[in-house]
Simulated scan of single mutants.
Amino acid sequence: MMQQFYPTVSHSYCFELNKDMHFSAAHYIPADEAGKCAKMHGHTYHLNLTIAGDQLNDTGFLIDFKHLKDLVHKRYDHSVLNDHPEFSDTFPTTELLARQIHTLIQEMLDQTDNQPECLQVIVRETPTSYVIYRPKKVPS
């Protein structure tokens, strides 16, 4: 995979990891304004995840890179995104895919003892187009 340079997220955590991965999937956006994308077509999606935290787990990881890849790749690789239940009430746009991947990753991280945070998810749909999803911070 070609090394990509992505926008960084400002944070005060001690540790930050970034994981690049890719998967192939098809989708369609059944809306008039989607143009050619209204028809079934496929992409090799390239992702970058940014995870940060102050505490490492007992192995010395924020989270094992393999867990991140397995969670996303096993769910979406060689599938039709429209067939996934998380997209049953909406269209699987790249924006919504990025948000959904963030949700999946953060739910997994919330189950760990060291509680890292997924700061951003970048989904590249084509060589020239990508989406960045960063959850809004809720004031305490």
Rank of each mutant, 00 (worst) to 15 (best):
Y130D: 03
R75E: 04
A26N: 09
P135Y: 08
H67Q: 14
S88H: 06
R134M: 09
G42R: 06
H102E: 01
P127Q: 11
M21L: 15
L109C: 09
A25K: 03
E117D: 09
V131D: 00
S88R: 05
E86K: 02
D54N: 15
Q55L: 14
S79G: 04
I101M: 05
T8Y: 05
C37G: 05
P116L: 08
K136H: 07
K69W: 05
Y133R: 01
V80S: 04
Q4Y: 11
L119W: 06
F65R: 04
S24Y: 07
C118A: 15
Y133G: 03
C37D: 11
L109W: 04
L68Y: 03
L109V: 10
V80Y: 12
D110R: 01
H46K: 11
S88N: 04
R134S: 15
Q4I: 13
A98C: 07
P135G: 10
K69Y: 07
E117Y: 11
L96W: 08
I101P: 02
P92F: 11
M2H: 07
G53K: 08
Q120M: 14
F61H: 07
E16W: 03
T112G: 02
V138Y: 05
L56Q: 06
N114R: 07
L104I: 00
S88G: 00
G42H: 04
T94V: 15
G42K: 06
H43N: 13
F61R: 03
Y76Q: 02
E125M: 12
C14V: 09
K36S: 13
Q3C: 04
L68A: 10
T103G: 04
D113K: 13
K137G: 00
P139W: 09
K137H: 10
T8E: 12
Q106L: 13
Q120S: 15
N57A: 09
G35L: 11
T103Q: 10
S129T: 12
T90D: 06
